[in-house]
Design a protein around this nucleic acid. Structure first.
Lengths: 238, 238
DNA sequence: CGCTCATTTGAGGAACTTCAAGGTCAGTGG
DNA sequence: CCACTGACCTTGAAGTTCCTCAAATGAGCG
């Protein structure tokens, strides 16, 4: 991240609709400014990108994030801890519209592309000083951080529940975050979900089978496209 | 919390040194303003209290926290989720110097006194608008939220580790947060620690015994006063 | 002292992991 | 077109970790 061009270098042109399909939601950073055109201009002066990353690319190490904040346009970003032992924990998934990179170097997390993704890089200092002048921006930043805090706290709560409950809750929450479509097209892989929930892929797979047998969900054809058939029941799992 | 007097009503005068012993660290809200006397005055105009709570008193329900933010002066505050089933999870402990109440009503958490405690109540809106005028305050608030976010994320990481690792890490982190004294006087009860770590009190007790047998810690006389004997070893537990 | 609550210890059982193997799917090259 | 590859997903059997239930011990307070 010392030089953003290093990040963009390995990415060649490709057909957007193929990888960033129309089903993907896309977010717009300019909306942060509302209707204020001069503010929109100031914001766009702070941004660099969009930059594209392929699945499993490392976007940044947490130590590098001091200067830039990231904003997800399409795809899914994960922040995770990779231990020397090979064990991995995923702390958070970021979807379109989320800011990535609030937390400083304390925990040395790795920011990676969970799916192919498009990101904006935003000069952190510039955004913060903009917030000191503009109440709207200040509130957006405070809301962004407290929302992420709320999600982290829900994640903590989730981790002390059973595997069945963790997975049911994860799926319904994801369904809500992705806009409550008819089908839940799960964007991230099973290994990613398992590491997010503190489970093995085996337990994940077995539990999804259990939920399916209980009539709560259905694999519409494959594991990546689900239909949540009994929302009330899913919320009641424990 | 609609009326703070309701909170103060049940508390009678008592000998401070008995309950809020000298061993307890105490925090000063005015330090947020640094040396700026006029800023200190503006801050103190926003605060109400200190208010005292006894152990296990409910300080606020999360839905009530819209108007006030809290600042811990002495003691330990917990934010927790109490399910109808009787199950309880503790999301976070707040020590002297911490702000409580950033997260809004989404998750309906209960803010409770884990030990006897003294708190300031601070008008949220007033503090936020002060932040929009003053860069120092703005940075204090952003730092407070991102620090809490970092702690929540570490908590998430902790929850996917073994019981032994969770407890060893909890103890060393607590030791650091409390100022690295010779003895670790654990301020919160075993049930609270267990609910924070997603374990039972039995597992907690057994594991502490294991850590003691391994020579990593010692119960100096009782369970509430520990000595961390091998910090390197404690950090290496997995 | 005698009460209550907190902590410790034990035995058995449930939940999840580990290890192992088979199946599916998309992309690749012959 | 088809077989090959590698990553992902699924399923089974055995093993660990942690929980549940139950009881004993220890600490604080009137």
């Amino acid at each position: 991240m010392a030089n953003l061009d290093v990040c963009t270098a390995p990415f060649v042109e490709f057909d957007d609709t193929k990888i960033f399909g129309t089903a993907e939601t896309a977010a717009n950073f300019a909306k942060v400014a509302g209707d204020d055109v001069s503010l929109q201009r100031k914001l766009s002066a702070l941004q660099r990108g969009p930059v594209r990353f392929y699945q499993n690319n490392v976007i940044a190490l947490n130590e590098d994030v001091a200067d830039y904040l990231m904003f997800v346009i399409t795809g899914v970003v994960r922040s995770c801890k990779n231990c020397k032992s090979g064990h991995r924990s995923i702390v958070s998934f970021y979807l379109p519209g989320d800011f990535v990179g609030w937390v400083d170097a304390k925990l040395s997390l790795s920011i990676e592309a969970s799916t192919d993704t498009e990101l904006l890089f935003i000069k952190r200092k510039g955004l913060v000083s903009l917030a000191a002048q503009n109440v709207r921006i200040a509130n957006v930043l405070l809301t962004a951080t407290t929302n992420e805090l709320a999600r982290a706290q829900e994640h903590v709560l989730l981790m002390s529940k059973s595997a069945k409950c963790r997975i049911a809750t994860f799926l319904t929450d994801l369904w809500v975050r992705l806009g409550k479509a008819k089908y839940l097209d799960v964007p991230m892989s099973h290994p990613d979900i398992a590491d997010y929930l503190g489970l093995t892929t085996e337990t994940l797979s077995r539990t999804i089978t259990d939920l399916e047998r209980a009539g709560l969900i259905a694999r519409v054809p494959s594991a990546r496209r689900l239909m949540l058939q009994n929302h009330f029941g899913l919320r009641r799992v424990n």
